[in-house]
């Protein structure tokens, strides 16, 4: 069984600061997983390690059995929190560019998601508001039919209407028969009905990884309540 993202005893240090400590877990295909925890708990770093954009100080990260590095981008569709775009492009040009670079980028799907997100294809990215940039990020990330979709805080800082259309977009365009969606969130309530399982971090350590239903059965708690109990 090699179709997994697997972390084995992963530690990540920046200069003198330890951001993640001895993390081990695996995520298979067919799941929606939330990485949860407070500010500075290491959520974003964990996601970047899975994408191969960051490299572990010790331990190993493998994606489908291969050590993660930047070339992992072939099978991982990653979106950063602030969004990464070439400001020189319009919305349409950005979509075309992604399509030219990634064999798994489905332009027809991108068009559909763009309409759902109510984006104007001729808008210059430079001129997009924060909310619109968030939507564009969704379009560019979900239009790839990559096995792993990793999104850093896809819902944060957006108004409820946009959040709802993004959630609907995720459900509509992520095919759980062949894909896995992993996202970070500091608002657990926001993603509770969306996720199968979660990875809870605290101060760079893995607190727990479990299925949401499993948590219900073992502790009779919703994940939000469990987090309140555990983090205070």
């Amino acid at each position: 069984m090699s179709d997994v993202i697997r972390m084995t005893n992963v530690t990540k240090k920046y200069i003198n600061q330890t951001v993640l400590k001895d993390i081990s877990f695996a995520v298979p295909i067919g799941k929606i997983v939330g990485i949860v925890g407070g500010n500075g708990s290491g959520k974003s770093t964990l996601l970047r390690l899975m994408s191969g954009l960051s490299l572990p100080t010790s331990g190993s990260v493998t994606v489908n059995g291969e050590t993660a590095n930047r070339r992992t981008g072939k099978v991982v569709s990653y979106s950063s929190e602030l969004g990464s775009f070439y400001p020189i492009f319009t919305v349409k040009e950005a979509m075309r560019f992604q399509a030219s670079q990634f064999a798994d980028f489905n332009l027809a799907k991108a068009d559909e998601i763009m309409k759902l997100m109510q984006l104007d294809p001729h808008m210059k990215i430079k001129a997009l508001s924060k909310g619109h940039r968030g939507r564009l990020q969704i379009v560019l990330t979900l239009a790839r039919e990559a096995p792993y979709i990793l999104m850093d805080e896809p819902l944060s800082g957006l108004d409820p209407m946009v959040r709802e259309s993004i959630v609907k977009g995720m459900i509509s365009y992520v095919d759980l028969n062949s894909q896995t969606l992993i996202m970070t969130s500091h608002e657990v309530a926001e993603i509770e009905t969306l996720i199968d399982g979660f990875v809870a971090l605290k101060g760079g350590s893995l607190l727990r990884m479990a299925d949401v239903d499993e948590l219900h059965e073992s502790e009779g708690l919703r994940i939000t309540d469990w987090m309140k109990k555990t983090y205070i």
Partner: peptide, 13 residues
């Protein structure tokens, strides 16, 4: 300014 975008490109460096 947007390094993840460039680095996650599938083409070799």
């Amino acid at each position: 300014n947007h390094l993840p975008l460039w680095l996650s490109n599938p083409q070799p460096a």
